[in-house]
Amino acid sequence: MIVEADGLCKTFRVADKAPGFAATVRHLVRRRTKDVHAVRDVSFALEAGEVVGFLGENGAGKTTTLKMLTGLVKPSAGRATVVGHTPFARRRDFLSAITLVMGNKQQLVWDLPAGDSFRIHAAVYRLDDRDVQRRVTELSEMLDITDKLTTPVRKLSLGERMKLELVASLLHQPKVLFLDEPTLGLDVNAQQTIRAFIRDYNAQHGATVLLTSHYMADITALTERVVVLHQGGLVYDGSLSSLVSSFVTTRQVVIKLRTPVDGADLAGLGAVDFHGPAELKLRVERDALQPTLAQILERLPVVDLTVTAPPVEDTIGHILKTGQSSKRVDA
């Protein structure tokens, strides 16, 4: 196991102040604090070469967990082991074996072309300049960004900057990549390039990737396995497809109508998602699908009828919001 989290917990103490003048003064005199349990008892493990999606709403504890795995935050309890090291000791060997990319933070020197930042990285990671040159060429070709290496970073678009951040983060050939929202705020093209890049990079170098993203497309395209956090706790660890299928117990039935129907005609046919003059959308329990379809064909003026599973995005969104999934999967 190249990455192991064993009962990780993190509790923060934060200031607690109500808005308004009186509360401000009160806060000045006596600071009230409260404990926030950002991460509680999270355990999972990654095998070398795996690409795993890390899911959860904002504030579910993803970033804090990533920071504990990279040694930036000391766990309140529990143990992390990454490439054989305890991250928080921040040993040179450990740091040279990992990388962290954060979509909302930049490390390239703002006023200079990225090439200059790469040279600094080379010195800091004690890399040979020729190796670095080779790697820059290879990575920037994969990302289709070779023509931007000499432009000052401040003059680049967000997508171009992110691609160069990726190049910088991978110069030292890390074994484990922690990617925190690497596609945040990028347009669809740039997202696709980066997605393809991560897939190819993983395939070619066998690097382990732990990825968080708000874009389900990133997750579905890149990962077989997902780890889901909800309110700091782990609620699911397994394959993406079984997460979706086990959760989805309903089917969507879309019906094209010859003539409009009355609401009363729909009684007993499942939940109505949409009711228009020429179209109907119904949600029907999977187990009741057969008899309900028979009823529909019998009672309604059907021109066309399709049965689909609800979109993955909706399902995942629902799981992340409610944290409901473990019961179904474990059962």
């Binding site: 808005p19 308004g20 003048f21 401000t24 806060h27 000045l28």
Partner: peptide, 13 residues
């Protein structure tokens, strides 16, 4: 003034 006062107090150190 109230908002800025609160803001300043956050940075009272």
């Amino acid at each position: 003034l109230e908002v800025y006062y609160a803001y300043m107090l956050v940075y009272r150190s």
